[in-house]
Design a protein around this nucleic acid. Structure first.
Length: 866
RNA sequence: GGAAGCUUAGCUCAGCUGGGAGAGCAUCUGCCUUACAAGCAGGAGGUCAUAGGUUCGAUCCCUAUAGCUUCCACCA
């Protein structure tokens, strides 16, 4: 092994070897299955740090299960991300002076496929750098033939069941992406704008109604003004005609509950074509619908002289015109929220159009039930509220998109006007009349339509395959809270509807990786951290550990490069400890632990290891992965390295062959178990080290996961010896004795010898002693005296012992012991405490009081003699 | 407007069903001790947001307040 940890020297090679050997593959067999389907990554561009977190968590779960002997399958996949990809392609065409329309649908789709073909491996290669163990032979793509089949099948099922309908609705439209987007993709942002107060005169000249609006440009689409039916101010005026300013057209003053009495001027203009509420009002009052904004976000003919102006830019011109005509009363500053397109950021336009919808009410019901009856569990639990809240207030799902890439809606119309859905990719004739001239619907499906089927479409659905039978329902879904409503909920109702069962049992929700100031990483701000950079600088294992260590599931992670650096420093520590062990067990004679004469320290570390195994296993099961890594790191540094390794040096470098053998075997055993426990988190370095052990299997990733030791008696008092050593170190530090100055150590035993006499070498080594020896009485030399449990330690520090200083030290100690005694007495004299606290607690307190009283006596005695 | 979460050491955060406040980083002191100076040993640093309540006992449970964050929502 090299002197320092250099991940770049072995990470790639180890991963490629795993791939070659096919260790990641899974086939149905007679074992229990554990399955995860990877949230499909967009084929656009690069892996970001969120992918790294998401996949690290999944890999940890999969690797653990695999080692625990379960048949673990992790299905990787990619998503066609239609809108985003289409944008890229369109831009590319534009650069070459072309457009979608000019090359035609077929050619455009061909280019789409070329693009996917070219970039799929880019994202996959990046994921591979993370060391993740998904079954690459099953790599799925949302536009694979089998998945297309699933999409068409599901669509037709919905269609047959009357769950899909085509209807007019106000939907969010992005004039820049030129497509409808879902409510989820419509991001509300705060906006500083104005409220324009506009005068609408009555046609008969009997006065006016003042309307306040944030969108004067939609004035051309107004077909009424509404007031609340109970608003006394407008009594007797409802039903009269108003003149629409600038257009000089008559519109009616109507009464509708939608209009609130206390708000604004009490009157609101109604623009059915450009506002969902207004549409409803318009529907109730049978109002005309006038579109005044077109597909490109420009004003239409309805705007007369303003035709062709951009919807936002038009405001100024309209304002001037209103002003000139005497219609504008005032303009005041106003803060409101406005919808923007998640992808391009432009203001979305509520727009009335014909779209395809899925009826959600009945589908949502069992999905709600699944969480309520515990078939589906969220971790952490609080996220089930997000899920339920959304499903309980569900709106019908608009599934059509006006783009070309993606799954085209499988609905056809024949020449005779018959419309039908077909599972066949190219149906030959109309099932109603046999007509063979068929045209297909132009829209494609929302990408989430195919992602919703992911847990079963990737396993073969709609074909009833072996895989589907064996692996479905999957076990755990790991994803961020940002797509609970987008995706998780859709998979759940789809799974229940088409497979009759929830698609997974546990949903593990993690947070978002933010920059160190807590701001969301984005290209726009340039505050993103590239996971590939981190891997190149610190190694994949360090990146993984840094993302997951100390993380609390479901909470956002603030991340900066220092975390990767720290993780690398820790791994270096593990690496060096391993190197030490490996170097010192070259001549090991491996024996089972129960054949060894274990000493106190050996029992101590084995006991600690048992505890570690228990905690790590439990925390992985609970999905509290950040706690599991903390357990592991704490054990490695504070137990194994700081104490056990140092302690074994006495035996490894000593004369006693037997003791050396015991130390070698325990070191080997602990390191072996520790590497296995660490493997799911930092797979590459653990494999590398494991291969250097004197005895090992072909790969660590297929070894058995450590279990609690089955040794009879591991009880020990070694903690007392550690305390004794610490006391000596403390005293030395207090007298400013540098670590390189060693002294003799005299130990007078008091009461029971808690193995102290058997650990004198260890005590000397770790407490900076030249020697440590048992004495019967206080030495003649001038010493610092340290009171410990079962012993008094005398440290001859010669001229360094300053009696004033020693006095000071003792006084300080007496002070603190007195404080403790006070505290115990107070508690024990509290009647309520004695009466109601648990007995064990009271007993513990009494014992403490007794010990401290004794210590106080000894210290006082000592102070007298200084 | 509805909902959820957060507020603990200088920074980032842990703290299980209430029973003496923890880690990492940063900082200070001493040490290159043959795995590791990317290290070792020791120390300093907290009215656990505020005010009430329940309890023998509250960082933890309840109520209110303040500040921050996020999600959902059609208020001109």
């Amino acid at each position: 092994m090299d002197k320092t940890y250099s991940p770049e020297l072995f990470e790639r090679e180890i991963y490629n070897n795993w791939l070659e050997k096919g260790y990641f593959g899974s086939k149905p067999d007679n074992r229990k299955s554990y399955t995860i389907v990877m949230p499909p990554c967009n084929v656009t561009g690069k892996a970001h740090i969120g992918h790294a977190l998401d996949n690290t968590i999944q890999d940890i779960l999969i690797r653990t299960k695999r080692m625990q002997g379960v048949n673990a399958l992790w299905v990787p996949g990619t998503d066609h991300a239609a809108i985003a990809t289409e944008q890229v392609l369109v831009k590319d065409l534009k650069r070459n002076g072309l457009s979608k329309e000019s090359i035609g649908r077929e050619e455009f789709l061909k280019r789409g496929w070329d693009w996917y073909g070219k970039y799929t491996h880019v994202i996959c290669d990046q994921l591979k750098m993370l060391g993740i163990s998904c079954d690459w032979s099953r790599l799925a793509f949302t536009m694979d033939e089998n998945l297309n089949q699933a999409v068409r099948h599901v669509f037709c099922e919905y269609y047959k069941n009357g769950l899909i309908y085509k209807g007019k609705r106000v939907v969010n439209y992005c004039p820049s992406c030129k497509t409808t987007i879902s409510d989820n993709e419509n991001v509300h942002v705060d906006q500083n704008t104005y409220l324009w107060y506009i005068r609408y005169p009555f046609a008969d000249g009997s006065g006016e109604v003042v309307v306040a609006t944030t969108r004067p440009e939609t004035l051309f689409g107004d077909t009424a003004v509404a007031v609340n039916p109970n608003d006394k101010r407008f009594k007797g005026q409802v039903g009269k005609d108003l003149i629409l300013p600038l257009v000089n057209k008559k519109i009616k003053l109507i009464a509708d509950d939608y209009c609130e009495i206390g708000f604004g001027t009490g009157a609101v203009k109604i623009t059915p074509a450009h506002d969902p509420n207004d549409y409803e009002v318009g529907f109730r009052h049978n109002l005309e619908i006038i579109n005044c904004i077109d597909d490109n976000g420009l004003l239409t003919d309805a705007a007369g002289e303003f035709k062709g102006l951009d919807r936002i830019e038009a405001r100024k011109a309209i304002e001037e015109a209103l002003e000139k005509g005497g219609y504008l009363i005032k303009k005041e500053k106003y803060k409101n929220q406005v919808g923007t397109c998640e992808r391009c950021g432009s203001f979305t336009e509520p727009r009335i159009s014909t779209q395809w919808f899925v009826k959600m009410k009945d589908l949502a019901k069992p999905a709600i039930e699944a969480v309520k009856n515990g078939d589906l569990k969220f971790h952490p639990k609080r996220y089930e509220k997000t899920y339920l809240n959304w499903l309980e207030n569900i709106q019908d799902w608009c599934i059509s998109r006006q783009i070309w890439l993606g799954h085209r809606i499988p609905v056809y119309t024949c020449e005779n006007g018959h419309t039908f859905a077909s599972e066949e990719e190219r149906p030959k004739k109309c099932p109603h009349c046999g007509n063979t001239y068929l045209t297909q619907d132009n829209d494609v499906l929302d990408t989430w339509f195919s992602s919703a089927l992911w847990p079963f479409s990737t396993l073969g659905y709609p074909n009833q395959t072996e895989d589907l039978k064996y692996y479905y329902p999957t076990s755990t879904l790991v994803t961020g809270y940002d797509i609970i409503t987008f995706w998780v909920s859709k998979m759940v109702f789809s799974g229940i509807k088409f497979m009759g069962e929830v698609p997974f049992k546990d949903v593990v929700i993690h947070g978002i990786v933010r920059d160190k100031h807590g701001i969301k990483m984005s290209k726009h701000l340039g505050n993103g951290i590239d996971p590939i950079d981190m891997i190149e600088k610190y190694g994949a294992d360090a990146l993984r550990l840094s993302l997951v260590n100390g993380m609390s599931m479901g909470t956002d992670v603030k991340y900066d490069e220092d975390k990767a650096k720290d993780a690398k420093i820790f791994i270096n520590k593990l690496y060096n400890a391993s190197k030490f062990v490996i170097q010192n067990i070259a001549d090991i004679n491996i024996k089972p632990l129960n054949k060894l004469e274990l000493q106190e320290k050996d029992k101590w570390i084995l006991n600690e290891l048992d505890l570690l195994i228990k905690n790590v296993t439990k925390n992985i099961e609970k999905y509290t992965i950040g706690v599991a890594t903390s357990n592991l790191i704490e054990f490695t540094v504070s137990k194994f390295c700081d104490w056990y390794i140092e302690l074994t040096k006495v035996d490894l470098y000593g004369e006693d062959k037997d003791r050396k053998g015991v130390a070698q075997n325990v070191l080997y055993y602990v390191l072996d178990a520790l590497l296995k426990l660490f493997h799911p988190f930092i797979p590459l370095v653990t494999e590398y080290i494991y291969q250097n052990l004197p005895q090992h299997e072909e790969t660590i990733m297929l070894t058995k996961y450590p279990k609690k030791l089955n040794l009879k008696d591991l009880t020990n008092n070694f903690a007392d010896i550690i305390e004794l050593i610490k006391s000596i170190r403390n005293a030395r530090a207090e007298f400013n004795v540098p670590d390189n100055k060693r002294t003799s150590l005299y130990i007078k035993l008091e009461g029971e010898d808690a193995e102290i006499s058997k650990n004198l070498q260890e005590i000397a080594k770790l407490a900076y002693g030249t020697t440590a020896q048992i004495v019967n009485k206080e030495p003649q030399e001038k010493c610092v005296k340290i009171i410990c449990k079962n012993a008094v330690v005398y440290i001859p520090m010669g001229e360094l012992v300053d009696s004033n200083k020693e006095k000071e030290r003792l006084e300080k100690e007496i002070e603190s012991v007195k404080f403790e005694i006070q505290r115990s007495k107070k508690m024990l004299s509290n009647e309520g405490f004695v009466a109601k606290a648990p007995a064990a607690l009271i007993e513990k307190e009494r014992e403490k009081l007794a010990v401290n009283t004794q210590t106080l006596e000894k210290l006082t005695e000592q102070l007298k003699n200084v």
